[in-house]
């Protein structure tokens, strides 16, 4: 019974991850695309938790959705003039 719930959560998570990935690739504004890529990482960390990997989930939540978004924004700040 509990495993059925896990499967439903995993399906919903997978669909949302793919939607955010499409947003990250195709949105015109770069900042929105970067935040969508961070959201992909954040939802992937929940998926790791479902897969019984808490270490990986912690790392992904701290690095994938925290630090990498900050690094992307610092880089974007440096090249702000060429938004094309």
């Amino acid at each position: 019974m509990e495993s059925n719930l896990n499967i439903i959560i995993a399906i919903v998570l997978g669909v949302i991850i793919l939607i955010f990935a499409a947003l990250a690739i195709y949105h015109k504004k770069l900042s929105v695309a970067i935040i969508a890529a961070g959201a992909v990482s954040l939802l992937a960390s929940i998926m790791y938790l479902l897969l019984a990997a808490p270490d990986v989930a912690m790392t992904e939540a701290a690095i994938g959705s925290g630090l990498s978004v900050i690094i992307f924004f610092y880089a974007l700040n440096k090249i702000r003039k060429h938004h094309d």
Partner: peptide
């Protein structure tokens, strides 16, 4: 517990 050098370093 879950955790370690990489996660702590990121924090």
């Amino acid at each position: 517990t879950p955790g370690g050098g990489f996660q702590g370093g990121a924090i």
